[in-house]
Amino acid sequence: MFTALYELFIGKNPDPTYRNAVFTSVGTLTLLIMLVLAALFYLLLGRWRAVFHRTSHWILTLVIALIIGFSLAISYAKDATGEPSADSYMYGFAGVNLLWALIVFVGASALFRRGSVYARHTPF
């Protein structure tokens, strides 16, 4: 499923490592990290005290989420392929993963905000 998602945007890489070891792991990991981040924002901090609940805080979290989404993809791909430096395909992959992270985080936000107390209407 993730393979299809990534390859839709960046095409196939001849190296099967991407399909076998990178796409699914990175996609799943990104999904989980975004869920965790959103849960952290909405269900943990957002229920604890009204200290980190504003739209500006949300945007900060989103930026961090996107940084994670991007760097996770790069580092994972570099690691799996053993390349010493990232190539253009990896940047494309990281870009798509950033998009994926964005979608998941925003989606998770829409989902989790109902469970929040102080961030129930952040940022919507």
């Binding site: 070891a21 961090i64 994670i68 760097s71 790069i74 580092s75 799996a80």
Partner: peptide
């Protein structure tokens, strides 16, 4: 975030 990008997440072949 730094930790994530720094450490090796891919299963070591």
């Amino acid at each position: 975030a730094w930790w994530f990008s720094g450490c090796n997440l891919a299963p070591q072949e």
